[in-house]
Structures are given as structure tokens and as C-alpha cells.
Design a protein around this nucleic acid. Structure first.
Length: 245
DNA sequence: AACGGAGGCAACCGCCGGTTC
DNA sequence: AGAACCGGCGGTTGCCTCCGT
């Protein structure tokens, strides 16, 4: 498939740049009466000389009635930091957890001030290109397959899950699955390799299988547990069973 | 008052995955 | 099956405002 031309190139007379109040009014009224979607045909249906992409962006990032105005609160900032640690630059995912905030707004907030602020006070390096966890659960959340993500969490939790006995897989299968699926980008290479290649989540946590000193395993285990506690809280907001985590 | 640098933010761009034909 | 279309995403750009000199 050949690359398509941008809408402003393929369509003569398409306007670019800042939106006028009149255009905003037209777009808002049209969407409020006809609903979102069909962005490509929206401009001519609404009588706007814009491309569909531009209309969509304007609506989602600025005109939507549920958009929250004003500065990011300390609580929101804390949530952004924690989510970014967990998810990396998945701005739309992060925004999904901050009602009224857009991915663009959070991205701008991060790029302009927050990342520098954190950099200055950082005790350890966690970059956006190096997210802490890439799990099947995370991928499921990205696709809004929350039930699947919950199942992954049950597997992770093992016997502490109230539904553990309902699972059909035996413990060895669970361990194999987790070893295959969980990829940790932690800085401690030995511990990481241990977890990925030899580790077992349910072997009592002695560390002997991991190829790393027990204190490192304990440290990493705490970090991982912390991440998953946070993930569990998020899932619980969707009506999951993980409130007692 | 004029100027220039810095920061904030809206908008654009290219790419990708899913869907439709 | 695959080309075309569509919506969505993250990265980047460039304009505007603010502030210090």
C-alpha cells in the first residue's frame, strides 16, 4: 500500500493552523447533534474547510464538554508519575486514568516540566524508553481487555488469589507461562535474567533459582510487588476483584 | 519601549493496526 | 488476499505569551 498524502495536500482549500471561535462553534454544534465519528466526512457534512483529522483532534483535545480546565493538581501529578513509571509514554492510557485530561495535555505537561523536575530529583534512572514492566496484563489493559488482564493478575498472585483454585492450570504451567510472558526491564541484569530465564514465582522466594543474591531478589521482588499493587488498584477501579490485594 | 530567550501548548505529521470492500 | 480507508497514537513543530535585560 502506498503512503497516502496528508489531507491538506490532497484536498485543495483545506484550512490549517489555529481554529477560530466560529469554526469551534460549528464543530461543537455538529458533534453535539450528530455524535462523534465518521471524521473524514464530517468536514463537508458540517460545512468546515478542515480535514477530518484536524476536526477530531480539535474536538478531543479542546472542545469536548468533559474536558477539565486548569492546572494539574498534585494528586494528578503523582498519578501521572506513577503511571508513567509503569506504562512509559502511553499517553492515551495515562490520560484514560485522569478524568477530563487529554493525552496531549499530559504529554505536554510531561515534556515541558515534569520530566525535568523528576530528572533533577531522581535517585535512579527510569527513562520513557525503558518502561519498568511490559506484561501481558499491560497489553490487555491497552486493549481494554480488562478481564483478561485480571486473569493474568490471578496467575501472578497465585495462591493469594481468591479465585486461584478455580484456575484449571497447574502451578508448573502457571510458572512456565509467567516466565515466558513477563519481561522485566530492571537495571539489575542478573536479577532480570534470573527472573526471565530461571525464576519461579511460586517456589518460596528463596532466590536460589534466580542467579542473583537473595537481597537483590528481595529488592526486585518488592519493586515488582509495588508495581503490581498499583496495577491492581487500577484494575479495581474497573470493578475488578482485586480490592483486597 | 524594544528585544530576545524560554516555556507552554495547540496543532501537525507520519506511522500503525483494524476494518471494509 | 490484499488494497484502500479510517481512527488513533506518540513524536515533533512552530506560534504565542511571558519575563528578564
Amino acid at each position: 500500500m502506498g503512503r497516502r498524502k496528508p489531507c491538506y495536500v490532497s484536498n485543495e482549500g483545506v484550512k490549517r493552523g489555529a481554529w477560530t471561535p466560529e469554526e469551534d462553534t460549528i464543530l461543537s454544534q455538529f458533534i453535539l447533534s450528530h455524535g462523534e465519528g465518521k471524521w473524514n466526512s464530517l468536514p463537508w457534512r458540517a460545512g468546515l474547510k478542515r480535514c477530518g483529522k484536524s476536526c477530531r483532534l480539535r474536538w478531543l483535545n479542546y472542545l469536548r464538554p468533559d474536558i477539565k480546565r486548569g492546572n494539574i493538581t498534585p494528586d494528578e501529578e503523582d498519578l501521572i508519575v506513577r503511571l508513567h513509571k509503569l506504562l512509559g509514554n502511553r499517553w492515551s492510557l495515562i490520560a484514560g486514568r485522569l478524568p477530563g485530561r487529554t493525552d496531549n495535555e499530559i504529554k505536554n505537561y510531561w515534556n515541558t516540566g515534569l520530566s525535568k523536575k523528576l530528572e533533577a530529583g531522581a535517585s535512579k534512572t527510569v527513562t520513557s524508553q525503558d518502561p519498568m514492566i511490559k506484561t501481558t496484563s499491560l497489553k490487555c489493559i491497552q486493549k481494554n481487555h480488562l478481564q483478561v488482564a485480571e486473569n493474568e493478575m490471578q496467575l501472578f498472585m497465585g495462591e493469594s488469589s481468591p479465585h486461584y483454585n478455580d484456575l484449571t492450570t497447574d502451578h508448573d504451567d502457571v510458572n512456565d507461562t509467567l516466565n515466558m510472558r513477563f519481561e522485566f526491564n530492571y537495571e539489575l541484569g542478573t536479577a532480570e535474567e534470573g527472573w526471565r530465564n530461571e525464576g519461579s514465582f511460586f517456589n518460596g522466594g528463596t532466590g536460589e533459582d534466580y542467579g542473583a543474591p537473595p537481597d537483590q531478589i528481595q529488592h526486585k521482588g518488592n519493586e515488582i510487588a509495588d508495581d503490581f499493587n498499583f496495577l491492581a488498584q487500577l484494575l479495581d477501579h474497573e470493578g475488578g476483584w482485586l480490592g483486597n490485594f
